[in-house]
């Protein structure tokens, strides 16, 4: 299968590109797409423990199956915003 992988924010900076096309075996998961990206762009490994992911613009999980033509997005932690305890 062939999927489009998207990187956002700091992850895009680390990869040096925002999207790439990834060929994966049948029955691949989101995690397989992530690992293929780490192989191709080793610097992305730095964010491996603090990621969210989305498939076709819906939040997903690393163990979720993906399919030919899917858009698989990897999302660094969000801005969050400061919270000061009152």
């Amino acid at each position: 299968m062939r999927v489009t992988v998207q990187y956002f924010a700091r992850l895009r900076d680390l990869a040096g590109c925002g999207t790439w096309t990834c060929d994966l075996p049948d029955r691949a998961t989101v995690g397989d797409a992530w690992r293929a990206g780490v192989e191709r762009f080793p610097a992305t490994a730095a964010l491996g423990d603090s990621l969210s992911c989305a498939v076709n613009a819906d939040f997903s999980r690393m163990d979720a199956p993906i399919h030919d033509g899917d858009e698989v997005a990897f999302l660094p932690p969000v801005s969050g915003g400061a919270w000061t305890e009152p």
Partner: peptide, 23 residues
Amino acid sequence: KQIAPVWKREVCEDGAHWIEGPV
């Protein structure tokens, strides 16, 4: 702030950085 996939990059006098919170 908790969950929207929106990121901010702060450009300061001394350089630029992504502001990241929790996953």
